[in-house]
Design a protein around this nucleic acid. Structure first.
Lengths: 340, 340
DNA sequence: TTGTATGCGTTATCAC
DNA sequence: GTGATAACGCATACAA
């Protein structure tokens, strides 16, 4: 057993099936079969081939395989902002599901910019087998133009004819409104997300529905950048609205708002109640801890990846358009309405 | 100008340079040249070719190109835990630097497990041009065996003969010890990170150096899982040590410790001072806000990517082993030593 | 400047 | 069960 397993083909390049074939004394096509299919080959020669492959440290060249098969075993996940904690769950879930199925996940970020998103997508599309678009800002036409007929799954956005993983906004929002109603609030301000955010519109719609039903006043303030800075910037309009409770599009906005309120000496929840969406890392750290509507982001990522893979592999997509449950997490940032 | 730009080669597959060549009335190699090189071709034919390519929505097949060139224009970044906020900066910096240089970044996670890390790496290595290993747990031998001669850059770990981006622990730690000394602390506990963490050892070493110099007692407690749960679990040993100040390996540990101390009714910083490393999102949200040593993680990611690309492209690696500055951020979790 | 021929490493189709 | 051969799409060496 020679120690120099690095006896590669020529130069310093990696071993190919030709090298393995030569060492094992068989033909290259037999090597290919032995390493792809399990038992469609004589056990003895398969053993020889495996030994030779090990000795040469053979690894199949993904590009050669991909050129022939037309598949890269790679999926793309496009998100607006990697540093937004909401994304974690999605990323981790998608990454795990992808790698369990033997796929590699490429994560790309559009930096909250529609143009950048198009650019990134254009570059990525040719080299992946499928695409997950999380909270995209793209118009429907642009989306279709860019992805073409490449399998695509959406997260947090509903476009006809494109499979999607969507939250069941309904349950969480109804619980939230019920909670605020129970605390005596009669006027709620909704701090909206970005202008093109499908999910922000859905949240607002549901909120409006439930406040109407309960005879609570509701006003939409926005659009806002879905960041801490965005929340801080919105404080003036929030206070001007005289609402006794704020529902922010996401936790980042809510946290920014609370920080600025604290700086301004406004008590939360004594003078104004604040709540958000997503239950990000940090929401239970802040003081007062944030009341929020949690979505199952981790399953969203995993489900999106599994759904995409089933489409790519031409299987029966079993759980398309299944909704993700949401639930209210009550913490300390919401309290009884201030007597006005 | 026909509207059906989708007139592809055969079936529904994408257009190739052959299709473009036919439409433009030139040879495939001319198409290849026109689209790779800028001006090494007659302007008139180049225009024709571009028009044809646009009409057919031609996109070069990355696998065909890669098969020939041996390059995938892809880099891998391996991290222990995507959901750890420390990683954000690294990921974002690396992603930006990579995509600026025309590279795609694949982010993979080892879930804090050495075995998983090896597995992931084994799968990724053949399909990327280079690798960034952030806070790896792998042994030096395993690392060499897995990456082979593939260009590699380390973050937060120093291994002879492998380029690395390292923090200058010195400055931050000396400032921290000086700060604690100034507050009258005479006994410090270091809450260590995982057993195989190079960076945890460096922090402890430096800490020891500076406490010795100042005549302060120091004790290492650990190893600990670098998570909130790890911090909570360590509280008993921390209190048993009777140290008046704790320096945690990272902010997550520090936060967990503070949460458990709060649950136990121990005042921070009144009874014990707590500090961490990294200045993650959440550290200024918690109450009391966490005193911490910040590293420039975003530049670490970007620098690692740029360094790796310069190696892959065979350029002069200009800033190898340049250290990243660290600085102390004083917040509310550290205060005067309790009278014992 | 442009066209022709060849090879990158793999898989699938066809003989044997 | 195994070997020869063509094809995947692109980029280069060489010829024209």
């Amino acid at each position: 057993m020679t120690d120099e397993a690095g006896t590669r083909g020529r130069r310093g390049s990696a071993a190919t099936i030709y090298d393995v074939a030569e060492l094992a004394g068989v033909s290259p096509s037999t090597v290919s079969r032995a390493l792809s299919k399990p038992g469609r080959i004589a056990a003895s020669t398969e053993a020889k081939i495996r030994a030779a492959a090990d000795q040469l440290r053979f690894r199949v060249n993904p590009m050669a395989r991909g050129l022939y098969t037309g598949r890269s075993q790679t999926l793309a996940l496009l998100v607006a902002d990697i540093t937004n904690p909401v994304i974690f769950g999605i990323v981790r879930g998608a990454e795990q599901a992808a790698s369990e199925a033997g796929y590699t996940l490429v994560i790309a970020e559009s930096q909250e910019s529609g143009e950048a998103e198009g650019e990134v997508l254009r570059r990525l599309v040719p080299s992946v087998d499928g695409i997950i678009l999380a909270t995209t800002r793209l118009s429907v036409e642009t989306m279709h133009e860019l992805v073409g007929d490449k399998p695509t799954v959406l997260i947090n956005r509903d476009v006809p004819s494109i499979p999607a993983i969507l939250p069941d906004v309904e349950k969480g929002v109804s619980e939230l409104v019920e909670h605020l109603d129970g605390l005596g609030h009669t006027s709620i301000a909704y701090l909206a997300g970005p202008a093109a955010s499908w999910i922000s519109d859905r949240r607002w719609e549901r909120l409006l529905e439930h406040t109407e039903k309960r005879g609570i006043a509701a006003v939409e303030i926005g659009p806002n950048s879905p960041t801490i800075a965005g929340g801080r910037a919105a404080v003036r309009r929030v206070r001007a609205s005289r609402a006794t409770a704020v529902v922010a599009f996401n936790d980042l906005l809510a946290i920014g708002l609370m920080q600025q309120l604290a700086d301004d000496g406004v008590g939360v929840p004594a003078e104004i109640s604040v709540s958000g969406f997503d239950d990000i890392f940090g929401s239970e750290l802040i003081v007062p801890a944030l009341t929020t509507v949690r979505s199952q982001l981790e399953s969203a990522g995993a489900r999106a990846a599994r759904l995409l893979i089933s489409i790519v592999d031409d299987q029966e997509p079993d759980d398309a358009r299944h909704l993700l449950e949401t639930e209210l997490i009550v913490r300390a940032s919401t309290g009884p309405a201030a007597a006005s």
